[in-house]
């Protein structure tokens, strides 16, 4: 087996450009969120937490969808690059889910009066977080590269069901968490400048995710090559 049999995840020259785009858009999005966007009429300035909370949650959804696609890719083709993308995306997805939980908690305390409450959106998000932490723990149980990738892929495919459950949980019963404001029937229901700021935030977080994914997956590919070389 030669180490050149598998393509690199992304050519090295793309990653610096991705890093630059991610950092630049993050700086602009943060400035817009803290300065340019209007103050919420009801909640006041604390609503500005939305501009990191919602993009964190969106990026977590995206990351777990990528885990699903990469897991199918591994089971279908047995190409190691798919397993590298799956583990990278799961790890980053756990990070973004954690950030959505923490930023949500910091928003909940001044608006709801509590740091945490067991209402549907929070409960389902906590379950999603724990399931993907479990995915990462499962991977550490075996050092057989192919067996580990296959076991993980099965979990990666099953666990994606969390994404629509979390997203729709707010519509299933009377909840404390607010309903979808952007992805709703009838179009987005918020101020134009708020919407523009939120969308740029989502774009920035997506670029950060792409950069982290490329970097983390490349790391995993290098590990795979070393394991293959060791036989």
């Amino acid at each position: 087996m030669t180490t050149t049999a598998f393509p690199r995840v992304l050519p090295l020259r793309i990653r610096p450009a991705l890093a630059l785009a991610a950092v630049a858009s993050a700086l602009i999005a943060t400035a817009m969120a803290l300065v340019w966007a209007p103050t919420d009429a009801v909640q006041g300035d604390v609503q500005r937490i939305m501009y990191v909370h919602v993009p964190s949650a969106w990026t977590a959804y995206l990351a777990f969808l990528v885990v699903f696609v990469a897991s199918v890719g591994w089971l279908w083709s047995r190409r190691p690059v798919f397993d590298a993308v799956a583990v990278a995306s799961a790890e980053i997805g756990v990070l973004f889910t954690g950030l959505a939980l923490v930023s949500g908690s910091l928003w909940a305390k001044p608006t709801w009066g509590v740091w945490w409450t067991w209402e549907p959106r929070l409960l389902t998000t906590a379950v999603m977080f724990v399931m993907y932490v479990g995915y990462l723990l499962l991977r550490s149980l075996s050092h057989d590269v192919a067996r580990r990738a296959t076991r993980a892929a099965v979990v990666g495919i099953v666990a994606v069901v969390n994404v629509p459950i979390v997203h729709l949980s707010v519509t299933w019963m009377n909840a404390l968490h607010q309903l979808p404001t952007v992805l709703r029937p009838g179009g987005p229901a918020l101020d134009d400048r708020m919407l523009a700021t939120l969308l740029l935030g989502v774009a920035a977080f997506t670029l950060v995710y792409a950069w982290l994914l490329a970097t983390r997956a490349a790391l995993e590919r290098a590990r795979q090559d070393r394991w293959l070389a060791l036989g």
């Binding site: 993050a26 943060t30 803290l34 006041g44 300035d45 604390v46 500005r48 937490i49 990191v52 909370h53 964190s56 980053i92 990070l95 954690g98 950030l99 923490v102 930023s103 910091l106 928003w107 305390k109 001044p110 950060v208 982290l212 970097t215 983390r216 790391l219 290098a222 590990r223």
Partner: peptide, 30 residues
């Protein structure tokens, strides 16, 4: 001083600080 400024500052610092820490951790991992 904005009301709830501490909550806003904490949310932004934790989110961007964690992402920056993750980037740095990737540099140290092999």
């Amino acid at each position: 001083m904005t009301e709830n400024a501490a909550f806003i500052a904490a949310a932004y610092l934790i989110v961007w600080g964690s992402l920056a820490a993750y980037v740095l951790s990737l540099r140290g991992r092999r």
